[in-house]
Amino acid sequence: MQQEVLSKQLDLSALLHDVSNSFKGASLIVNQLIDGAYGYSLEEIRPFLIALRDTNDRGMSLVEANRVSQEAKPVTVAQFDMLSFLQTTYSLFKPIAQYHSLNLHYETQSSYKHGTQVQGDSISIDRMLCNLVTNAIKYTLAGDIFLRLLNQEDDLAIEIEDTGCGIAAEQLSNIFIPLWRAPNSNLLHQSGMGLGLYIALCVAHAHGLKISVNSVAKQGTKFTIIFPYKDDGIYGLDGRMLPKSQRLQDALSI
């Protein structure tokens, strides 16, 4: 019973974490538009208005998805194109990276061995990616962030790499623990709930994906998400979402 109560509390905290991040991003874009950071003509600001709309829609989608889960309705699993999905993610975060004087890059291949179709819950996958990109921006004081879609043999891989502060080797085993925050977070003046990487791990677990991290302190961090190849040429889930793990770190209901 205690485990179930704690799991529900984490679910709510995780939802508030992601909704808060979404609307913070929207507020940041609005303030930049008001200040004329991107110009004043409709043509100049159109891409940023689209990013603002998508950021706002993302927050509402998270709330709606939570309402559906509270009604015990099944999670919607659908097929979508990861290439264009990541393009939207890039467009959403580009003005936020610019605000922090960072360069956000979206790198793709000219072709993919088995295409880029993915099957899964797009809202959950969006949560995973947005948390990883948000963290990359948060812990990079200067330099570049790379969002990549590529093949690793037959598998489809997403890489999110930054040139930020990195993670000390002795801390790597802790980063997916809910509510854990790196000791240098306060030194970097970064606030947070310690839930972003926990959410990313939970989404990866539910979709049967592999998530790994490579990091060097003071040089940067790279997260890699592997979508294993399926015989039907579609990456991701074969059918329904995987059952909820009994482990605390996999306890997020999505």
Rank of each mutant, 00 (worst) to 15 (best):
M60S: 13
G36Y: 00
A206G: 09
Y90W: 09
T108S: 05
V203A: 12
P228T: 00
K222V: 11
A142C: 06
L52W: 06
L52M: 08
G208L: 02
L150H: 11
V216S: 13
I254F: 14
V213P: 03
P243T: 00
P178E: 07
H17Q: 15
Q119A: 06
P243M: 00
A168G: 07
Y40Q: 10
R247N: 13
F85S: 05
A157E: 10
D154G: 01
L150K: 11
V77W: 01
E107V: 14
L252V: 05
P95V: 12
T134H: 12
Y106E: 02
N214A: 12
F176T: 10
D231Y: 06
D231C: 10
E159A: 09
M1G: 14
I199C: 08
T76K: 15
R67L: 15
A169D: 14
N21R: 11
Q171S: 12
G36P: 02
L104F: 04
Q119K: 15
L242G: 05
L33W: 08
E153L: 08
L195K: 05
A72S: 15
K73G: 11
V216Y: 08
D238Y: 07
D35I: 11
I199A: 09
Q219D: 10
R46G: 05
L52T: 01
K94V: 06
C165D: 12
K218L: 11
L179K: 15
A168I: 02
R67I: 12
P178K: 04
Q70L: 15
G39E: 03
Y229N: 12
S185E: 07
F85T: 10
F146T: 08
S91K: 13
L132K: 07
V216P: 02
S101P: 00
L201S: 04
S101K: 13
Q119N: 09
E170N: 14
F23A: 05
L150G: 03
H100T: 09
N31W: 09
H205I: 11
D57M: 10
